[in-house]
Design a protein around this nucleic acid. Structure first.
Length: 430
RNA sequence: GGAGGGGUGGGUGAGUGGUUAAUACCAGCAGACUGUAAAUCUGCCGCCUGAAACGGCUGCGCAGGUUCGAAUCCUGCCCCCUCCA
């Protein structure tokens, strides 16, 4: 590298954006030329409103978009209200059911609320696919499809695999990349952003643009974030995701639960920590002169702060330390009311002497004999009574720091009940 | 139009009349160990009653039927897949 590039120079800022946390740029040279031209670029990002939840996996790409925005480029957000009806075929086998117009609208709103937590709304243009596809006729469809062959589409990895395995590929699924490509034509995209699994679709966009006499868009592919399980890509259907709208303490906890091996990747893709610092951490980790746990706490803090702010992030950290490191009860827990206890006591009395430990005569009691399993079910922490009983048997339930041995249990006002590691109930004081 | 295969618990997938609430694996939950990491070990993993159960209920696409007894047999229906044309 020449020394010129190391100086802080606004016109060079974008060079960094092409390096960090990027899986592939097609075509990189052209991308560089575009950026050098100094013209504000039209950055296309589409989404499918059949699944409106944004998680950290999506955030990887959104952060990149945001960074380009900050250099003055324009984001075009495409609401895939038509492709939503087809269902995203990438990797998955299931054909999704069609959504009603209202559902799509509601999903789109939910999506955008989350989207703009990362993306600057001012520099974003939102367009709906129906703006052009609603006018599409069969003739248009024929024209569009006639430009491509089945063989071309079978080149796509997941189609090829399914075809080879004799598994079904719906015709509408073949339409999906075409529609996405046509979006690029409509909005005259300069760059399309997506995860590496979007490569094929984005490339179809390039081809179609060329056929329609437009300049080809560049394709910016982001690595897929590995989910909390440490194995598969983060996705809602696999349940290994951290959602953008997750409350601070949960978000913090989920980050803490990722395997150490993912930590540096998360730092790289999801935080602004400098490359130098990243390098330093990497080194220290491999030399074992930094505690992975402390480093991960920093990661969790950084991530939570991005979505909830500094103060809530620190609070989440304090809560985490309290509950999981010191094993104390959380500050706030779901409350069990006295009414519930009274009701349960009636229920479980069954011939046992009506009274156990009461308060002063004439005063309401401070302690109740209840069925613990029933209490857990009624409070909604556990699905069934059987499950609750199993948990008790497995010594997973604690009442005021002592393990509950059997189902019949004395519960006092103000008691804390813990189920497993993370479920808590607090009995009302009065 | 023809031939064949299949629909089983969150997923994959055994089971072809009775110790089958249903093998196994994955996921999940809990305990031990810990850093809510990894690895490891152990237990659980339909619902209800119960201290517990070899107690009851529901359950193998849907609806009926045969049988002392059916996920397993019969009838009808719905859905899916493959191959040939």
């Amino acid at each position: 590298m020449c020394s010129k590039e190391e100086t802080v120079n606004p016109s060079q800022d974008w060079r960094r954006l092409l390096k960090r946390g990027v899986a592939e740029i097609i075509v990189e040279d052209e991308m560089v030329k575009l950026l050098e031209s100094g013209r504000p670029l039209r950055l296309k990002q589409g989404f499918d409103p059949s699944r409106p939840d944004i998680h950290l996996g999506h955030v990887v790409g959104l952060r990149k978009l945001r960074q380009f925005q900050e250099l003055g480029h324009q984001v075009i957000l495409i609401v895939g209200d038509w492709t939503a009806q087809i269902g995203d075929p990438s990797g998955q086998s299931a054909t999704r059911s069609m959504l009603s117009a209202e559902e799509v609208r509601a999903n789109a709103e939910t999506y955008m609320r989350q989207f703009f937590k990362v993306i600057n709304r001012e520099k974003t243009q939102v367009v709906w696919q129906s703006e052009w596809f609603a006018k599409f006729g069969l003739a248009d469809v024929v024209r569009l499809t006639s430009k491509f062959t089945v063989a071309q589409f079978l080149a796509r990895d997941d189609f090829a695999k399914r075809f080879a395995a004799g598994r079904p590929i719906a015709i509408t699924e073949l339409l999906y990349p075409l529609m996405q490509a046509y979006d690029s034509v409509q909005v005259q995209a300069d760059v399309e952003f997506g995860g590496t699994d979007q490569k094929f679709n984005c490339l179809v966009g390039r081809e179609l643009q060329q056929m329609m006499g437009q300049r080809q868009q560049q394709v910016f592919l982001m690595p897929l974030l590995v989910g909390t399980d440490g194995v598969q890509k983060m996705s809602k259907s696999l349940g290994n995701y951290i959602a953008v709208e997750e409350p601070p303490d949960q978000m913090y906890g989920k980050v803490m639960s990722i395997p150490d091996s993912l930590m540096m990747g998360y730092f790289e893709l999801l935080t602004d920590i400098s490359d130098d610092e990243l390098e330093e951490y990497r080194k220290k980790l491999s030399e074992q002169c930094i505690s992975p746990m402390l480093l991960k706490k920093r990661l969790a803090r950084e991530i939570v702060a991005q979505f909830h702010g500094e103060a809530p992030a620190l609070e989440a950290e304090a809560g985490f330390e309290r509950v999981f490191q010191k094993r104390e009860a959380p500050r706030e827990a779901q409350e069990v009311t006295r009414e519930l206890l009274e009701r349960l006591q009636e229920f479980s009395r069954r011939g046992i002497e009506p009274m156990v430990a009461m308060g002063t005569v004439g005063q309401p009691p401070r302690e109740y004999l209840v069925s613990l399993s029933l209490l857990l079910v009624e409070a909604g922490v556990v699905k069934s009574r059987g499950e609750a009983k199993r948990l008790i048997q497995q010594r997973a339930v604690e009442v005021d720091d002592s393990t509950a041995i059997n189902d019949d249990c004395r519960i006092s006002l103000g008691s804390t009940i813990r189920v497993g590691k993370r479920r808590f109930l607090k009995v009302a004081e009065d």
